[in-house]
């Protein structure tokens, strides 16, 4: 985990000057953050909706409200930095919040492990950005303020996991932490694999298009009676179960 955090910090240090190089880029990045935080808010709200334990519910709910507030703050700063007109497109593409339904998919213990690890990464990320923007009139304060909430999220998810550990579910918690860490790494690995796979399959399909398809396109051209136009008359097949079983 510590290695993970220091990796995050080093990466941010390395890429921040490029990624955050202009007001427009900053505005676009902040709009992206707003969308991510809004998505997290929806996931935490869903967790609050589905879980039964009153204490957990309240904590998830508070977490959701924090994320919603962050989304608003990011959006407001994004608007301040970017000219509204320049930003509209990126906001248009990125401002919608997507829920990942993590609570339903992971179950309580793994969900908590996920929150803990994600927030820990988030804390490191925002802390690095706070340092990067030291002296900036608005962003230093923004990241500092959000960082405070992230620390709370790390603390409460850690203490909940500890409480579960102390209640005799130590093995389960350890397993969950491990499995989430592995899952996160596996997801990144797969993303990379998928990207390369996509490129490769494009190449294969392009070759097929150039080598295989021309022959058939030629046959099509020879046999084609031309694309139909104008009204067509066709009798619907007799409505029956056996006819409706057909996909054609």
């Amino acid at each position: 985990m510590l290695a993970d955090q220091s990796l995050t910090r080093s990466l941010v240090r390395l890429v921040a000057p490029i990624v955050w190089r202009s007001d427009r880029k900053m505005a676009s990045k902040l709009a992206g953050f707003a969308a991510t935080e809004a998505g997290s808010a929806l996931d935490m709200l869903k967790a609050a909706e589905l879980c039964d334990d009153k204490k957990l519910r309240r904590l998830f709910f508070r977490h959701a409200m924090d994320e919603a507030r962050h989304a608003k703050m990011f959006r407001a700063h994004s608007r301040l930095l970017g000219k509204e007109s320049d930003l509209q497109e990126s906001e248009y593409m990125r401002s919608s919040a997507t829920r990942q339904n993590l609570y339903q998919e992971l179950g309580l213990v793994r969900f908590l492990a996920f929150v803990y690890q994600a927030e820990k990464r988030g804390e490191a990320h925002f802390d690095s950005l706070r340092r990067h923007f030291a002296g900036h009139p608005s962003l230093e304060k923004l990241f500092e303020e959000i960082g405070k909430d992230e620390r709370f999220h790390v603390a409460y998810s850690k203490s909940l996991l500890k409480r579960l550990q102390d209640s005799g579910r130590e093995k389960e918690v350890k397993q969950a932490k491990r499995s989430i860490a592995v899952q996160t790494a596996w997801a990144s690995w797969r993303r990379a694999g998928k990207r390369i796979g996509n490129v490769l399959s494009w190449c294969v399909l392009a070759i097929t298009y150039v080598v295989v398809v021309p022959v058939f396109a030629l046959v099509q051209r020879i046999t084609d009676r031309g694309a139909a136009h104008g009204w067509q008359r066709r009798r619907l097949p007799e409505g029956s179960v056996s006819e409706m079983r057909r996909q054609s």
């Binding site: 690995w189 998928k194 399959s201 294969v204 097929t208 058939f216």
Partner: peptide, 29 residues
């Protein structure tokens, strides 16, 4: 009916791509 050979070739390509994807999962590079 003359489209069938093309579909067979395309399906074989799809299988190949499927295999490639599985390998990609094992080793992206």
């Amino acid at each position: 009916w003359w489209l069938l050979p093309m579909l067979i070739i395309m399906s074989l390509t799809a299988v190949l791509l499927g295999v490639v994807h599985v390998i990609e999962y094992a080793a992206p590079f």
